[in-house]
Design a protein around this nucleic acid. Structure first.
Lengths: 125, 125, 125, 125
DNA sequence: GTGGTCTAGACCACA
DNA sequence: GTGGTCTAGACCACA
């Protein structure tokens, strides 16, 4: 479900929380669905329980999950709200990068061409 | 010349090296131009000389500057090469974000409209 | 495990990183094997932790190790790749020396004889 | 006559002394021939006189030149002795590299082939 | 416990 | 003056 790359330099707890974020964004985990328990995931990933706990706290603090004592952690809110929030993040990031490109003298025409190409042909998974 | 935000969570040495990178990208510092000496910048920014040293080492290691003992640190390479490298970084980042947007179901038409708008009206500095 | 010569003029951090490089080259340290912790090695070698840190950073930057916060430093990559790289370095060095010898008028016949002798009878450790 | 590369990381005084060593080795400067005066070379290379002085001191200390107060610096000794010394240095370096290659498991047959090839076809200047 | 960053300050080689 | 290395020791995030 979630892969950890120890060499990436990214903190393990962050790789875990980001991993769940993506699962929620893409609909693999739905509203009120239960996340694996801390112990369970700790065993499965061979990761310190403190680290799992920290990942879950980060998710909760971001409003993507909620926790119920004695029951576990669950996916929060409407997926649509969460999605909208992620859309805004990504668009803002793209805008910032475009601004920098233009500031550095990258041609508008070439940029427009590149952007439309990105939109047409996706190279991703 | 360079502003440090102690609250940002970003390491000081990294803020400094990134700051110089931007000055080089935008042409404010040209090839073979001298950077402030370690002690000079240390005094100006009220930052420990070791931290400046670390920032300069990072720049040198990235190939953006070179150092000559007894003389100082200098901007390396042709600015055009460095710029090209930065263009590629930014375009790759944009592409990755666009890919994720589409994966998350963001409409291609809406995206195209947003992208073109970013390209037309810049909001940045 | 690693010996430091304070009189050699070579920076301590470099002696340490080179020492680990050799241990990795010769297979004494295998892929994903843990290096001693910064504090541990600092105590063992009676060297400041910062200096150990610098040696480890150099190794990581060279791609020979990777670090995980809270866990430690580990040997990276396939040993075979690293070995290949070292072979190339050594062969290039030999080639450069041979070129200089010939430029300086050292006889090809005598050189050939010497080279083959080196290859037959090893004097090293 | 002598080129200085400020980016090489090698100390300037060392580039200068090595430069003269090569000129002496290859016979461009003969026994008792005069080297440029400190001031002269300082002006020509746009290098601090202290640095030239240090380069000349290094040459003298190595026995490759001698200085006469009021007259200047001159090439010392028989070129043959100097050459012989250099031959020995280079051969020792090659031997050390070959030893390491074999220790690291590089095949003797492949090595022999490579060495003979280096001797036959020079790629240098 | 483990790595990463930072300060304060010393000392050295080099120009 | 200029960069490079090192010690001593503190503090933080992470596991």
């Amino acid at each position: 479900m979630i892969n950890i790359d120890y060499r990436s330099g990214v903190a393990i707890y962050e790789q875990i929380s980001k991993g769940f974020e993506k699962l929620i964004y893409c609909g693999a985990l739905l509203k009120d669905e239960k996340l694996p328990s801390v112990r369970e995931l700790s065993a499965e990933l061979a990761v310190n329980p403190n680290t799992i706990q920290k990942a879950y706290s980060a998710l909760e603090q971001k409003g993507m999950t909620y926790s119920v004592k004695g029951l576990g952690n669950f996916v929060a809110g409407d997926t649509t709200d969460i999605l909208k929030q992620r859309y805004d993040e990504l668009l803002a990031a793209i805008k910032a990068d475009i601004d920098e490109l233009i500031t550095l003298g990258y041609g508008r025409a070439a940029l427009e061409k590149a952007l439309l190409q990105f939109n047409e042909n996706r190279g991703g998974i």
